Simulated scan of single mutants.
Amino acid sequence: MIAKPSALLFPAALLATSCTASAGVDSDTASASDFAGFAIEEVGSYDRPWAGTFVPGLDVIVITEKSGKVVGHDVANGKAIFFTGVPEVDYGGQGGMGDVAFLASEASQPLSGRTIYLSYAEAGEGDTRGAAVGRGKLLCEDHQTCEIRDWQVIWRQAPKTTGRGHYSHRLLFSEDGKYLFVASGDRQKLTPAQDMSNTLGSIVRLNLDGTAAEGNPFATRDCTCEEIWTYGHRNILGMDWDAQGRLWDVEHGPAGGDELNLVKVGTNYGWPTRSYGEHYNGDPIEDHSADDGFGKPAIWWTPVIAPGDMHFYRGDMFPMFKGDAFIAGLSSNALVRVEIDGESAKEAARYDLDKRIRSVFEGPDGALWVLEDGEGGRLLRLTAK
């Protein structure tokens, strides 16, 4: 449900920073250390929102709600857009409707006729479920209603398992628009993340129709792993491309050890053999070592930040942050800003928003948008003061 917009001004005192540092901008522009905080506008509220994105080329935001709804917000006039024809989801625990994505190649088209991609938790036989990804075409007969037609499931996490956690199911298109990357969580089963006979605990790289993309690193091996790009992951909740065109992910550790990873093709990131956290029952997990053969996080957090999403900033509204990663923090109730230096990373600031933050994305004008987690989660627009 859309709430009446209201403006909120967050003073700098409420935007706690872990440290301040220059982001390497020209001396005649504001530096990160001069940053005095965001002006925050409340735009709407939703029932347990999970993902949000601008439709390329339009001032329209599309938001998923875990219970299975897809809703839109027209920034120009403030009106809601309602989507029908959405797939049935298995709602419960961490499962339900997941991510939403649109093709940049269709940016010149109206909303009607666009291709919409959705990820979600899908029921299987017995007490099993798994992530699924599908796509369809939008038919919008008026300005507030769009029907998803010709819906087709193009990929399924395999195998379906018991439990309702760690679907991951974030979606990201390659920068050239030819491929779809899907984060596939370990479904809280741990060891399958080291077994390439399944797609749990991996990032898969697909053609736009869901088939395995040519050139994937394990396609010639004697395994059913032709989709896998990287593996040894736990629960990826965010993926994005940096300014150099490199893929990064952010994922939940167990008790401690949340990770930001530079994703290198064919790499095994070690879960559950190695981690900077420990199991929830207190059982230890061996830390990474230089010679362990696994990919290492660029930065890790204990205590955890509980990442919900991530986005590399590209806009001009905050030039001092261009190239930095913003991570939505759940248990940390914050936006966490990370500076990248080659293959290293460091937390530069933590902006306390006093609520669990599920998603962060960028508007066409460079404003940052965030979605709060949970019932009544607000959509907020963050601009320069």
Rank of each mutant, 00 (worst) to 15 (best):
T273H: 08
I116G: 04
L208F: 02
P364Q: 11
G270T: 06
G163V: 09
F181L: 14
A104N: 15
A243R: 13
D99F: 12
L371N: 08
D28E: 09
E106M: 11
V62P: 06
T199W: 00
L190E: 14
L237D: 06
L382G: 06
G366V: 00
L139V: 15
K189R: 14
R381V: 13
G177C: 00
L138M: 05
P364W: 06
P110H: 08
G165L: 03
I154T: 00
I61Q: 10
F181E: 02
G363F: 01
D176N: 15
H166R: 05
E372F: 03
K385S: 11
A213T: 08
H311R: 14
D186T: 09
P11E: 05
L171I: 13
S168F: 04
D365P: 00
T273L: 12
S331H: 11
D373T: 10
I2P: 03
V89Y: 03
N333T: 11
H311C: 06
E339A: 02
G44H: 02
N207P: 00
V360L: 12
H73R: 15
A123Q: 14
G130T: 03
R205I: 04
D324N: 04
R149K: 15
T220H: 12
H233L: 12
D47H: 12
D249C: 12
E278C: 04
M320H: 06
E141I: 07
W151T: 12
V25Y: 04
A158F: 13
P87T: 12
D341K: 13
T211P: 01
G113P: 09
T84A: 14
F361N: 08
L172A: 13
F294R: 08
L382M: 15
G52N: 08
I40Q: 01
T302N: 10
M97H: 09
N235G: 11
R350G: 01
A30W: 04
W301S: 10
I357T: 10
Y276R: 02
G342K: 03
G210K: 10
S119I: 07
K66G: 07
P5G: 05
H279R: 13
L380W: 13
A16I: 14
R187E: 01
F312H: 05
D90L: 09
Y167M: 09
H311V: 05
P49F: 14
C223W: 13
N235P: 00
T53S: 10
A131N: 02
